[in-house]
Amino acid sequence: MEQILGQIAKIKREKLGTEIPLLLFRALRHYTHFYASDLLGEKGANILLFNAGKTLGEDIGKSIHDDDLNQYLKNVAEFVEKEKIGILKLVELSDSKMVAQLDECITCSGMDNIGKRICHFEVGFVAGLVEHFLGKKVIARETKCNANGEGVCEVTVYFS
């Protein structure tokens, strides 16, 4: 997978550049979920997006790795903001869990309240970043979501 990430990072478009409008990203993201739900059911689609995010998180973790936790977290936050995924803030870190909030989430910031949490890809992404650093499996849950009317996206990661 790391090879794929390297190839993606090299992509250049001479006239159009490397950025796409948020509207197009969201259309691709949300229609992919709708299609996957038709094929796999809602839970299957959520797992698919989570696992895709987790794989990307692991690969990004390798590329921005630092043995110092504080520096690693800084690298992660800088990457997330630079790539316009959102603004990542660590709000809690203990021996048993980590809570991170993603403000201006690429998937759902500014959406109407649809009454459910939908940032499965982002939760997987955070889980992958944490698993890479710790070298062990974690449990990650979305504990707040803009699309659920909660004002921010939040991921809680439990260390196993």
Rank of each mutant, 00 (worst) to 15 (best):
A9M: 11
E81H: 14
V152N: 00
G6K: 14
L39T: 04
L129Q: 08
E104T: 09
L134M: 08
G61F: 01
D95M: 14
P21K: 14
R117H: 04
E131K: 13
I85C: 04
K84C: 00
A127L: 10
G53M: 07
I11E: 04
E19I: 00
Q101E: 11
L23D: 15
L102P: 03
C119E: 03
V76A: 09
G41H: 15
N46P: 08
C153T: 04
F121L: 03
N113S: 01
G135L: 06
A147T: 01
E2S: 14
G61C: 05
G44K: 11
T156N: 07
Q7L: 12
R141E: 06
K10I: 03
G6V: 06
V99M: 04
F50Q: 01
F79D: 10
G6D: 15
S63E: 03
Q7D: 03
F34S: 11
H65Y: 12
L102T: 01
L22W: 12
L102S: 00
E58Q: 02
L49F: 15
F25G: 00
G53V: 06
H132N: 06
K54E: 06
F159P: 08
G149W: 10
I8G: 07
Y31N: 14
D38H: 15
E122L: 11
I4S: 12
N46G: 14
R26Q: 00
M111D: 05
I60F: 02
M1F: 14
N51M: 06
T55D: 10
E142T: 02
Y31H: 13
Y158M: 13
N46Y: 10
F34T: 03
R13K: 14
G17T: 12
V80L: 02
V99D: 08
T32H: 05
